[in-house]
Simulated assay, not measured.
Amino acid sequence: MLFKVEMTVNPPSHLSEEEFNAIKLKEKNYAEELQREGIWVHLWRVAGLYANVSIFEVRDNQHLHDVLMALPLYPYMNVSVTPLCQHPSSIK
Rank of each mutant, 00 (worst) to 15 (best):
V67R: 02
K28I: 00
H63F: 08
G38Q: 09
I91H: 13
L49R: 09
S16P: 06
L71P: 03
V5L: 07
L68D: 07
L43D: 14
V41H: 10
D60N: 14
P83Q: 09
S90D: 15
E27C: 02
W44E: 07
R36T: 13
I23G: 01
F3H: 12
V81T: 12
S13C: 04
M1W: 12
V41T: 03
E33G: 05
W40T: 08
W40N: 10
P83I: 04
V9E: 09
M77A: 03
C85P: 00
V41A: 10
V67P: 10
L43Y: 15
V79S: 03
E6C: 04
E33L: 10
V79N: 08
V41W: 12
V81N: 07
I23T: 01
Y74G: 03
Y50V: 06
P75V: 00
N78F: 00
G38V: 06
E19P: 08
S80D: 11
C85L: 02
L25G: 03
E27S: 01
K24H: 15
E37N: 15
R45Q: 10
A47Q: 10
Q62A: 04
N61V: 09
M77F: 05
R59T: 02
Y76T: 09
S89L: 13
L64Y: 12
E6V: 04
V41L: 13
P83C: 02
S89C: 09
L84A: 00
A31Y: 04
E6F: 05
P75W: 00
V79E: 01
L64W: 06
T8H: 05
H65E: 08
N78Q: 01
A51M: 00
T82M: 13
H63R: 00
Y50W: 14
K92C: 11
S80F: 14
P11G: 00
V9N: 07
A22D: 09
